[in-house]
Design a protein around this nucleic acid. Structure first.
Length: 197
DNA sequence: CTTCAGATGCTCT
DNA sequence: GAGCATCTGAAGA
């Protein structure tokens, strides 16, 4: 996707990312591909759940002020990582958290990263919980803070989103975001989007 | 299916 | 020092 795709209202981009293909090219050249099924919008201007609420600039939130189409990755709970895609014009700190996906290509490598097993060895429980959470997705695609700040519109980054096949609007559900109990009135913003693939 | 505790280290005050 | 945009395995309904 082009920079203009990301240079829009964050809630719009969050909805529009559903069904798109997230591609991670490993240093060895393998393409890990998954279809995005769940997203959340975070908007620094108005949203107490956003790390950069009120334009708060710190070492961590610096990336949120970067141009649209930049990857924002951070460590959470000491052991997991979250992948976000920066949106809106440069200087407006906002991003979409990628919360869930289903594997689309090179499932064997993703399964190895995620569970240390081959796809055919996975239990039903493991198949169901493959990439259905931000930390699980980063584990499966080998993403960590090493990818923070990457430009998703440059080929060399090895991390990008392509068109895929968005679901029919009637299949898209929305509701409050997960894990932001501290965010006061923003707790209820219906900025989480998902669909059953 | 559900709840629950524990892991673990960075970030910001 | 407190809290965190999470996940797992164990135990119970």
């Amino acid at each position: 996707m082009t920079r203009e795709f990301y240079n829009r209202d964050t809630v719009t981009v969050a909805r529009d990312l559903l069904g798109r293909l997230l591609v991670r090219v490993l240093p060895g050249g393998a393409h890990l591909v998954c279809r995005i099924t769940e997203t959340e919008a975070y908007v620094g201007r108005t949203d107490k759940a956003c790390h950069a609420y009120g334009y708060k600039r710190t070492a961590r939130t610096q990336t949120l002020f970067a141009p649209p189409g930049t990857a924002y990755l951070y460590l959470i709970y000491g052991m997991y990582h979250c992948l976000n895609l920066v949106t809106e014009p440069e200087g407006e700190p906002a991003a979409v958290l990628i919360r869930g996906a289903v594997p689309a290509e090179n499932e064997a490598i993703i399964a190895q990263n995620r569970f240390g097993r081959k796809p055919e060895e996975l239990s039903a429980q493991q198949r169901k919980n493959f990439l259905n959470g931000p930390g699980k997705l980063c584990r499966g695609l080998l993403l960590d803070r090493g990818q923070n700040g990457l430009d998703l519109t440059r080929w060399e980054s090895g991390l990008f989103v392509c068109a895929g096949q968005p679901p029919a609007p009637s299949r898209v559900q929305c509701g409050p975001r997960i894990g932001i109990d501290y965010a006061q009135e923003a707790v209820h913003f219906p900025w989480r989007f998902w669909y059953e693939p």
